[in-house]
Simulated scan of single mutants.
Amino acid sequence: MTPFVDIRRAEDRGVTSTDWLDSRHSFSFGDYYDPANTHHGLLLVNNDDRVAPGTGFDTHPHRDMEIVTWVLDGSLSHQDSMGNSGLIYAGLAQRMSAGSGVLHSERNESPEVPVHFVQMWVIPDETGIAPEYQQLEINDALLGGGLVTIASGSTDDAAITIHNKRAALHGARLESGAAVEVPDAPFVHLFVPRGEVTLEGVGPLHEGDAVRLTASGGRRVTAVEQSEILIWEMHADLSGG
């Protein structure tokens, strides 16, 4: 596999903007469609969402998708047809496996504070599985400043489990000057939802920027200021290769 680095700037993302939602799409989503930008590796959706107080996504369906939600500020109220309900907040890893079909809603119940979160979708290894929900608080682990495995289908040290053995999501909160190493994998997606970092061999990455790496792992990410990063490590693409 030929090493390749594809830098995607924040301002080049697709946009959905309403009176209550500001959503920035790293890949084709909703009304934003670019046939040359549908996925990287196994990652199909990386939406950077801000939802106004007292609003949100009403009940809607999903099927055959592993959906991971990562809140940065505020909180998001979740309810689904499996009977799960609760608040998703910063430092809480949350995953919903849509499987054979599920209905859910995601709303910002705060009357004053917007919620900022990143929602990411990867395909499952098998279709038609029973829907599932899982969450775990990992805030204390993130305070250590290293790379923390938020979700994985192959390792035991992940906070939550996804139904894809070839994908894992890692996250880190970095103080200025702190650094972590990007996992070495055939496909890697690095996203900067907060702050500014530098990526070895690439240069500065600002809030909302992303880098898609193919066979180019092992690089160091260093925080220029207090920052947060999300890294997908993937050992296959949608073709299974």
Rank of each mutant, 00 (worst) to 15 (best):
S152T: 11
S152H: 04
S152F: 04
S152D: 02
G153F: 01
G153H: 00
G153E: 00
S154P: 01
S154A: 14
S154D: 09
S154Y: 07
S154V: 07
T155P: 02
T155G: 02
D156K: 06
D156N: 09
D156E: 12
D156R: 08
D156C: 03
D157P: 00
D157F: 02
D157C: 00
A158G: 14
A158Q: 06
A158F: 10
A158T: 10
A158Y: 07
A158C: 10
A159R: 05
A159G: 07
A159V: 12
A159D: 03
I160H: 01
I160Q: 02
I160D: 00
I160W: 01
T161L: 08
I162H: 01
I162Q: 06
I162T: 08
H163V: 07
H163A: 09
H163Q: 11
K165I: 11
K165N: 09
K165Q: 11
K165F: 04
R166I: 07
R166Y: 11
R166M: 13
R166Q: 13
A167R: 00
A167Q: 01
A167D: 00
A167I: 03
A167T: 08
A168T: 04
A168G: 11
L169I: 05
H170D: 05
H170L: 15
H170T: 06
H170Q: 12
H170I: 08
H170S: 14
G171R: 08
G171K: 06
G171C: 10
G171I: 05
A172F: 09
A172V: 10
A172K: 07
A172W: 06
R173S: 12
R173N: 13
R173A: 09
L174P: 08
L174H: 04
L174R: 04
L174V: 13
L174N: 07
E175K: 15
E175W: 11
E175A: 15
S176G: 15
G177Q: 03
G177D: 06
A178H: 11
A178P: 00
A178N: 07
A179V: 04
A179G: 06
A179W: 04
V180Q: 00
E181L: 04
E181K: 13
V182T: 09
V182W: 04
V182Y: 05
V182I: 15
P183N: 10
P183S: 13
P183K: 12
D184A: 15
A185H: 11
A185C: 13
A185N: 12
